[in-house]
């Protein structure tokens, strides 16, 4: 099958990351737990975007669009956390 050889390692890496985040959720990480699970999720999303969606091959404009979406989401999350964190 074309591409299977290239994509299979990515798939395995994704499953490994899933195992990581599952395992980490049983560790007593306290406040770091959401940080770890978010970081793992970001890594997985990057793998999917980079290899499955082939954003690394497509034009800069497309990458910019996807990045803008993620970035704006981060802004929404961070800025709306300012109020509850300091309330």
């Amino acid at each position: 099958m074309p591409g299977l050889r290239a994509l299979l390692p990515v798939y395995v890496a994704l499953l490994a990351l899933l195992a990581t985040t599952l395992g980490a959720s049983y560790l007593p990480l306290g406040g770091w737990s959401p940080v770890v699970s978010t970081a793992v999720a970001l890594a997985k999303a990057a793998l999917i975007a980079g290899f499955f969606m082939e954003l690394r091959l497509e034009g800069a404009a497309l990458r910019l669009a996807v990045f803008a979406g993620l970035f704006m989401c981060a802004i929404l999350l961070v800025m709306s956390s300012v109020d509850p964190l300091t309330r």
């Binding site: 802004i75 300012v82 300091t86 309330r87």
Partner: peptide, 22 residues
């Protein structure tokens, strides 16, 4: 413009530090 929205909420009971930031 995406970073200023809470200036609609200065008397809403939001934290005063958030008020200062926005």
């Amino acid at each position: 413009g995406f970073l200023v929205w809470a200036h609609h909420m200065f008397v809403s009971g939001m934290s005063m530090y958030a008020g200062a930031v926005f």
